[in-house]
Write a protein that binds this DNA or RNA. Structure first.
Length: 470
RNA sequence: UCCUCGGUAGCUCAAUGGUAGAGCAUUCGGCUGUUAACCGAAAUGUUGUAGGUUCAAGUCCUACCCGAGGAGCCA
């Protein structure tokens, strides 16, 4: 007999009275000296575990059942029955319990049926997914990823696999990791004594990608609607709860579109994937609402039902200046038009002023990247940030500069080398069109949905400075 | 990288410069269709590392390592 999913048993998809079999891991065991034991078993298909009632009369009761501890792997076969106890509607009256894998030293098994700190669990990342919290995070993360592909597929986007290995980090998105097969202890030298990368694997300097955007623009200018979804690498030594050195980013890019359509897309997309979580992972979300963040569900529901607040950068600065006039000590950093807003400013906008995600548009050109489209005022560019309460910047996007002369002017202004961007500039020479896109930090989205505070706890095996275990 | 706080039993945490403690987990016993059960008992320590001050350091000082929160960078 093939095994049943525990989720099917708990959801009533299998009628009471049927003989069932589950394969999973023991969460807890409670004995009754009346001669029976209760064993909670989980298999990852649902948040809840199912209770197996094991009578003392079965063959291996004294030998094995009473020795089961958290983490043991078992196959339980028996009749699905209405529960006599409180706390669950159905349970399995076990007729046979096969122990597949023991926990060799229960005393030091790292995951105990009790509350552990997330910091501690990070040190046992290979086992932490067995806990309620990390199992729920893994299911919600998967749900968001599946919903992402479904959303873009349903809206005629093509998923483009942009390269992981890139030849330039000149985009300015951040510090890049160098990749090389040269002998680090004795690298080949060129005439000037520098390292001779022409002898390296790719015949030139190469790095891990910091963004797929430039590449995906190429596909956008032929396929109209495209997106990337893959790992992204930044070598900044950030030490915060919202940065990783290896993270997953989603970057849609749409042709014949301006910044407003870009913002519409961001909003529509986020609403879609959040609704998917509410629909498909109600069990896990109930847990997050109960133990991690009280308003986890109501906040998402509100998000799905209402539109984002939208304002221009200039308006945002106006709001901040009003606050400074009223309460001069509110912010640590000064506010004036032209500043790159500090975290405290962004938090005020989305957490206090609007109490929901805010789209800020049209930033001063001096604080934004070269490829963003110059507005008619000559002072601002068509850039947007989506700021989420508790997370900060969850999305950053822009309309791209499609006019070659303007693009060249910006490249020069920022001291970049035109030749490095020859193929990117080609896109402006051959059938150029207005287009726009954004990048969303996928892991930050998982943080936002689950209410988990640290980004290291929503990715299976986090990589950050001084952190590459497992 | 900077600022602040922290590191004590397997885990979560106590301990005026003066004998190293509790809860949970584990083991044993009791009780019970139990619900991270309950009652009783046992076992559990190089107090992050290396120095220093002191009659005496978990506690004070210095350096380093690791973690958390905040900042910067950003997604």
């Amino acid at each position: 007999m093939s095994a049943h999913k525990i989720s099917d048993l708990l959801n009533g998809k299998v009628p009471v009275g049927e003989t069932v079999s589950v394969k999973g891991w023991v969460r807890t065991r409670r004995d009754s000296k009346a001669g029976l034991s209760f064993v909670q078993i989980h298999d990852g298909t649902a948040f809840n575990a199912i209770q197996a009632v094991v009578q003392g009369t079965i063959a291996n009761y004294e030998e094995e059942i009473v020795k089961l501890s958290a983490g043991c792997a078992v196959i339980v076969t028996g009749e699905l029955a209405a529960s006599q106890g409180k706390g669950q509607s159905v349970e399995i009256q076990a007729e046979k319990v096969e122990v597949v894998g023991w926990v060799e030293d229960p005393e030091t098994y790292p995951v105990q049926p009790k509350r552990h700190s997330f910091e501690y669990l990070r040190d046992v990342a290979h086992l932490r997914v067995r806990t309620n919290t990390f199992g729920a995070v893994a299911r919600v993360r998967n749900c968001l990823a599946q919903a992402t592909h479904r959303y873009f597929h349903e809206n005629d986007f093509y998923w483009v696999h942009t390269p992981i290995v890139t030849t330039s980090d000149a985009e300015g998105a951040g510090e890049a990791f160098r990749i090389s097969t040269l002998d680090l202890t004795n690298p080949p030298r060129d005439d000037k004594g520098g390292i001779d990368y022409s002898q390296d694997f790719f015949g030139r300097e190469t790095f891990l990608t910091v963004s797929g955007q430039l590449n995906v623009e190429s596909y956008c200018n032929a396929l109209s609607r495209v997106y990337t979804f893959g790992p992204t690498f930044r070598a900044e030594k950030s030490n915060t709860s919202r940065h990783l050195a290896e993270f997953w980013m989603i970057e849609p890019e749409i042709a014949f579109a301006d910044l407003n359509q870009d913002a519409d897309l961001a909003e529509d997309y986020l609403r879609y994937i959040f609704k998917a979580v509410l629909d498909e992972r109600a069990d896990d979300m109930a847990f997050f609402a109960q133990h991690i963040q009280k308003d986890a569900i109501t906040r998402l529901e509100k998000f799905v039902d209402t539109s984002f607040e939208r304002m221009t950068y200039t308006e945002a600065i106006g709001h901040l200046e009003k606050i400074v006039a009223k309460k001069p000590k509110k912010f640590e950093f000064p506010v004036s038009w032209g500043i790159d807003m500090q975290s405290e400013h962004e938090r005020y906008l989305c957490e206090e002023l609007c109490e929901r995600p805010v789209v800020v548009m049209d930033y001063p050109k001096d604080i934004k990247a070269f490829y963003m489209r110059m507005n008619d005022d000559g002072k601002t560019v068509a850039a947007m940030d989506v700021l989420a309460p508790g997370i900060g910047e969850i999305i950053g996007g822009s309309q791209r500069e499609e006019r070659l002369d303007m693009l060249d002017a910006r490249i020069a202004e920022m001291g970049l080398d035109k030749e490095e961007y020859w193929w990117y500039r080609d896109l402006r020479k051959y059938g150029t069109v207005p287009h726009a896109g954004f990048g969303m930090g996928f892991d930050r989205a998982v943080n936002y949905v689950t209410g988990m505070k640290n980004i290291r706890d929503v990715i299976p095996f986090p990589r950050a400075t001084k952190l590459a275990d497992f």
